[in-house]
Design a protein around this nucleic acid. Sequence first.
RNA 1: GGAUUAUGAAUUGU
Length: 264
Amino acid sequence: LNSFSILALVLINSNLFSLANGLLSRMMETRIPVSTILSSLLESCKECDRLKSRSVVFELLIDAYRKRGMLNEAFSVFMGAKDGNFLPNLLCCNSLLKDLLRGNRMELFWMVFEGMAESKLDLDVYSYTTVINAYCKVGNVQEAKRILGEMEYKGCNPNLVTYNVVIKGLCRSGDLDEALRVKKSMAENGLIPDQYTYSTLIDGFCKQKRSREANMILEEMDKLGLNPDQTAYTALIDGFMREGKIEDAFKVKEAMAAHGVKLN
RNA sequence: GGAUUAUGAAUUGU
C-alpha cells in the first residue's frame, strides 16, 4: 500500500494524473478501508516532502469516492487531508459540498463547510450559492439571505444562479412578495432574470394558488422576449388545474401551441 | 491545470 501511495505522489509530481488516478482506483478496489489508505497517503506525503502538488492526491481520491457515490469515504479523505495540512482546493471542496447537499448528508455538509472556513479558504460564488441553497432547502430563508449579504460584504458578487436560488427559496417558503422584490433588485446588480427566474416565480405563484398573477408573470416574460418554455407553461397549466380553472388551463395550452411550444 | 464544481427550474393523479 505504501508503495502505491508513493508512486501516486510521484506520478502527480510528474503531471501524470490519469496514471495516478488509475492507481488510486486500484487501491480503492482492494476494499482497504479509507482510513488505512488515508494514513498511508499522509505518511507518504511526509516522507516525500520534495514532491510538489501533493494535495492533489487527496483531491483525486475525494473525486473518485464522490463519483462512486461513496460520500462517507470522500468526507473522511477531506477531513484527513485538511487535518494533515493538505487542504483540497476550492473546486474539489465545492464539488464535495454539492454532492453532500444532493445526497442530503447535511451533517457532513456543514462539517466540510466549517473545515473550509477554518482553513481560511476564500469561498467563491459557487460555494456561497451552494450554502444558500442548503439553507433554502431546510426552509431557513433568513439565514440564506444573511449569507447573501455576507458574500457581497466580502466582495463576492452574487450572480444569476445565486439570485435564482434565493428566489426559489422565498417561493418555497411562500414569501412571494419578497421573491418579486429580490427579482427587481437583480437589475441593480446588472443581472437580467432568465427563464429559470421566471419559471421559478410562475411555479411559486401557482403553488400558492395565485395562478392569475403567475399568468401575468408569464406575459411579462413573453413581452421581454424571454420565450416562455415548456417548464413555464407546464407550471402555469398545473396551477390553473390545481385551482379548478380548467378553461384557463386550456387557454394556456392554446397559447403554448401558438408559440410553438409542445406539450410533453 | 488532473478534476471543471452552484438552479435536482415544471408536470408524471388515486
